[in-house]
Write a protein that binds this DNA or RNA. Structure first.
Length: 469
DNA sequence: AAAAAAC
């Protein structure tokens, strides 16, 4: 039985230097195109696997020993203090135990790391960046690229906490106190950003990447997606590699379908290490999933009003995912008109409005948040126990299920092994088929809950462990 | 034909 882990046993020999060389500013056109992402059942990432161990593929002859304690790792006292007293971590998680020795041991090889929601990926790359910085050099040395502003902010926060006792400076492209002027320069040692601003900063020579020794991609499969950020990402990689051939590239994500994984392996090169954790830690298993047949589109809103919102008061927090920005806006308005308190977020909103909505949600001031896929990945609010797929996640063609997106969306609940549940709203044959395919792909039960069966909704949330009863 | 970044 093939699984994600098996398929890396004998990775194809990647061609070297297959990312195009580009001038600073990443202006060059990419000649290396990633494959079209076609998620299919061939990605056995979620099959039953007997292997309990994290699968690793190490390059070269460097021996790596799994770290049972943070004390086993080549980390400064200041960083360890941050780990123990600020983050209150006891010992490394499994992914940390495996990947940190690979990341922190010279020669600093690139790494592809797949680990599930809440398994401590952020800690891995935060420590990687913090420990690779030379404190005596006051310039950018570590870069982390993320798909959304919200993730940029969140990751900067983690780096700052972890590095609380180390004299290392960090900043992000989400900062509001920074305006491009002729003499503006980024001097912070760690920079976390989204593509647009990073590209802008580099081309305007506000950000000098000459001394960048480590480049991290969070949600790496998204960042290497053919019809998405791939060209920006590969241009940035080759540009920095031209300045520093020894660049350590770290690709982190919970999901790498076969196509993106093959491309990622090409990007990191044959000297890279790889780490994959098995499905047993997959958050899917702890998240109860259901589907609700909605005869008409109006029923979706009705189910929210009649079933979900009234029950939400008793739950933790809820995120409702929709496909389009306009739906987020309209649904929010419709709910508010009916006196149901909630907020909404999507990429078309003003930055400060986005920041405000996220801050209120993190505070717990708002219980229900309507969102596009801007928050589908990485967004970490421990109080989220319920996810609603108001629209089923689909690829651009609107017919192919977006398997990875589904996994990431429902992974917003049940953080760090806590309870979680997900409702999938299904309207029409297309969404029904999408649901079936997702069900088959993940081989996970998704029972139906009748849209008008109030008692059953209550029952189901009890089953999922979200309410006391 | 969408969403994600951004000037």
């Amino acid at each position: 039985m093939a699984s994600w882990a098996d398929s890396v046993d004998s990775p194809r020999a990647p061609e070297e230097n297959d990312t195009p060389a580009t001038p600073p500013g990443f202006e060059a056109t990419s000649t290396s195109e990633p494959p079209q992402s076609e998620a299919g059942p061939s990605n056995g990432a979620l099959e039953d696997g007997q292997q309990d161990d994290i699968k690793t593929v190490s390059a070269g002859d460097t021996p790596y020993t799994s770290a049972t304690s943070f004390d086993d790792l080549p980390l400064s006292e200041e960083l360890k203090k941050g780990i123990y007293t600020e983050m209150k971590f006891d010992k490394p998680s499994r992914i940390q135990a495996k990947s940190l020795p690979m990341i922190l041991t010279p020669p600093y090889r690139s790494l592809i790391a797949q680990a599930h929601n809440g398994s401590g990926k952020t800690t891995c790359f935060a420590l990687a960046m913090l420990s690779r910085v030379d404190p005596s050099l006051q310039c950018p040395q570590a870069l982390c690229v993320c798909p959304t502003r919200e993730l940029v902010v969140q990751n900067l926060h983690v780096v700052q906490r972890m590095g609380k006792f180390a004299s290392i400076t960090a900043t992000s492209t989400a900062r509001t106190d920074f305006h491009l002027s002729r003499n503006a320069r980024v001097t912070e040692q760690i920079v976390i950003g989204a593509h647009g601003t990073l590209k802008n900063w580099v081309s305007k020579r506000v950000l000098n990447t000459e001394r960048v020794a480590i480049l991290v991609f969070d949600e790496a499969d998204e960042m290497l997606k053919a019809d998405g950020f791939a060209s920006d990402s590969t241009r940035m990689i080759s540009s920095i590699r031209r300045q520093n051939p020894q660049l350590q590239l770290l690709l982190f994500s919970a999901t790498f379908n076969d196509d993106v994984k093959a491309f990622a392996q090409k990007v990191v090169g044959q000297d890279a290490n790889q780490v994959y954790v098995p499905r047993q830690e997959l958050s899917l298993d702890v998240i109860k999933q259901y589907w609700v047949n909605c005869p008409t589109a109006q029923h979706k809103t009705k189910v929210l009003k009649d079933m979900i919102f009234p029950l939400c008061e008793k739950l933790g927090q809820t995120i409702i995912f929709v496909r389009m920005r306009e739906t987020a806006r309209a649904l929010h308005a419709a709910m508010e008109t009916d006196g149901h308190r909630c907020t909404s977020i999507q990429g078309d909103m003003e930055k400060d409005a986005r920041d405000r909505v996220v801050a209120e949600f993190r505070d717990g001031a708002t219980k229900i948040l309507i969102s596009t896929d801007v928050l589908a990945r990485g967004f970490d609010v421990t109080q989220v126990t319920l996810v609603v797929n108001y629209d089923m996640p689909v690829e651009r063609d609107l017919r192919t299920p977006a398997f990875e997106t589904y996994l990431h969306r429902i992974g917003r609940s049940g953080r760090f092994g806590r309870k979680g549940a997900a409702f999938n709203f299904v309207c029409g044959d297309m969404e029904k088929r999408i649901l079936e395919e997702i069900h088959k792909y993940f081989n996970h039960e998704i029972p139906e809950v009748k849209h008008d069966d109030e008692d059953r909704f209550v029952e189901v949330l009890q089953e999922a462990g979200l309410t006391e009863g």
